[in-house]
Amino acid sequence: MLTYTVRRLVLAIPTLLFIGLVIFLLLDLAPGDPTAQLPLTIPPEVREQIRQSLGLDEPLPVRFGKWMVQFCWVEPQVMIDSLFGSHLAEGQQRVLSWQTRSPVMDIVWQRMPQTLWVVGTAYLVAIVIALPIGIYSAYRQYSIFDNVGTFISMIGFSVPPFFSGVLVIVIFAVNLGWLPSIYDTTHAVNDWDSFVVQLRQMVMPVMVLALQITAQLSRFMRASMLDNLNQDYVRTARAKGLSERVVVLVHVLRNSMIPVVTVIALGIPQIFGGAIITEQVFKVNGIGQLLISAIQANDIPMVQTLTFIFAILIVLFNLIADVLYGILDPRIRYD
């Protein structure tokens, strides 16, 4: 397993380079223009000058090479500098956003807290709720609990957040006035009261997001448990006189985790990627909002950097999932 992991890690580098190139070509091919959002009062000649000042007139390989160097060589140095106070990256060109004309990574770090607070919490909440629901629904298949759970989770999944988000805002912020409708990203948590304020502004986005994730996770958990509950080894375990609790929660659960681990591993990069619509509805302004606004403004360095970070996380967490398969089911071998 260790050699497998090392081999995959080494292989990840060319994979990522290739993904980076494909994303770059895709973004370059996509129609669009960084000056599209400017008012029409700005004349075409000025727009052309703006494009030139963004480096758009350089040939494609040069732009890709520059971006690669800036992201993979300069940005790590900047990170080391800020950690240890060194001056490695001084005077070197960083990846600059076309919208803000400032370093992309600074904005990414700025956005991280709210995305982790909201999307991360939603994921935790969803996992904590979904796994027990999935397990119990399967254990008592077609009981009232299972049917109600199925009903709610399918409704939850089929109602898009652009609707459920506005619905909870109208109920809890407009009609009842209990919760704020706009997330304050400048709010600092430093004592109990400010923590309560933070909780209040997180409740609605977390609720909306968690509903979606719970629905998805609990369905896969239930299906997988159902597959395993009637297996021979379960009978054997019961026959050995193991308690029902141990049979279900240790033996069946462990063997049912493979699809669930896959889904969670696919989801974790999305925590960092943010939740585009939910962030927009609640004005959380995290990574998701950053990505969508960059796409709309054709801010290619920003989109490229964000999707590349996203790709790194995907490759990494899919590797972790593969390693976990081996731990959950020792029969799985890769080499």
Binding site: A173, V174, P180, S181, V281, K283, N285, Q289
Partner: peptide, 19 residues
Amino acid sequence: KGGGDAAAAARAVLETGEF
């Protein structure tokens, strides 16, 4: 504050009074 959509901004001033 920036972000969201026109309906949400109108709501924050006209209905909830947050802005």
